[in-house]
Amino acid sequence: MKCEALIDYFNGTLNDKDRAAFEKHLAECTDCREELEELRLLTADLPFAAEPAEPNDGMKERVLSAVFAEEPVTAVEKTAPAPAPRKPARQWLQPLLAASLLLSAGANVYLLAQKEETDQQVAREEPATLAGSVQLAATEGFNGQAQASMVQENGHSSVILQANQLQVPTGTEAYQVWLINEAGDKVRAGTFNTDESGRGAVSYTMPSDDNWQMIAVTLEPTATSEQPLGDIVLAAEL
């Protein structure tokens, strides 16, 4: 625990774990104990920082009358001992402590505002729901299988495709996923490679302005194809 935690410890803004760690540090650090004492002395003077107000004549008369009406102190009564002089805080430390207090308070307000904004954002988020899933079958001459799941979340639709037992691509080859609408238009919905066992996966946020009829996976010569050039390996109707 570093000594800069002193201000937060004095303000009481540390959590239980950090407070306990700092108190352990405080027992071993003379400088921190002295600065903490000076900080307490500095803030103890705050109530006396206001300018003295002169009481009006009526108040003076009432106070003085009450004082002189009291019984005189007898010889056997002991006067209260004078309070011990307080150790004055180092003058150079006072502006630094005041600035640290201000920064600590500002940081706490900022963190609270950030937490409130995050909580509100989480509350606005909707849980993801499964809108449907299909099994993709291998076309003639190819092996493998895949499952495509359509997920609704926060007003958006996504497709998640998981494939296995595919042929492992060689060289620059890559698998690409395509969404096909009723007009035959094709949109690339992701590119993936497989591991040594022929397994691969990809996710894609689906455009919402088309009525998608089919999903297909092709083995492309490169990963940059904008339209399918290779053979269709897997396909299914949506």
Rank of each mutant, 00 (worst) to 15 (best):
T222R: 02
A236N: 02
A98W: 06
P95N: 00
C29A: 03
N154L: 04
E77L: 06
A75K: 13
M59K: 13
N193M: 11
V63E: 06
D8G: 10
A21M: 02
D119N: 11
K78R: 14
V187N: 09
A128Q: 09
W178T: 05
L14M: 04
E140S: 15
F68M: 13
A84Q: 10
L36H: 00
N154T: 06
Y110W: 11
S133D: 11
R188G: 12
K60W: 14
D209V: 07
A69Q: 08
V217I: 13
P52D: 12
A84Y: 00
P221D: 10
D231M: 08
V159P: 06
L161H: 04
T222L: 01
D209W: 06
A20Q: 14
G198N: 03
G190K: 05
N164P: 04
R188Q: 13
L46P: 02
P81E: 12
E70W: 07
Q213C: 01
E38D: 14
L93H: 06
A5I: 04
G106M: 09
A75C: 01
S203W: 09
V187L: 15
Q145W: 10
K87Y: 06
L234P: 04
H25K: 08
A123E: 10
E125Y: 08
Q94A: 09
Q165A: 10
P85S: 08
D210T: 10
T170K: 14
E28V: 07
D18Y: 04
G198F: 03
R86Q: 13
L26W: 03
K115P: 01
E51M: 14
Q135P: 05
P72V: 12
A123C: 07
A107Y: 11
P47R: 08
T191W: 01
E77T: 14
E153G: 05
D31G: 15
A148M: 02
P85L: 08
S157H: 12
V233E: 03
P85K: 09
F10H: 11
K2F: 05
N56W: 02
N15A: 09
K115R: 15
P52T: 08
A49K: 07
A84P: 02
E153D: 10
G132V: 06
L102S: 10
L26R: 13
S225H: 07
T74F: 00
N15V: 05
G230R: 05
N56A: 12
A183P: 02
A69H: 07
A189D: 01
K115A: 15
G144Q: 01
E237N: 10
I7C: 12
Q114I: 09
D18H: 09
Y175S: 01
S149C: 02
L219A: 02
L42S: 14
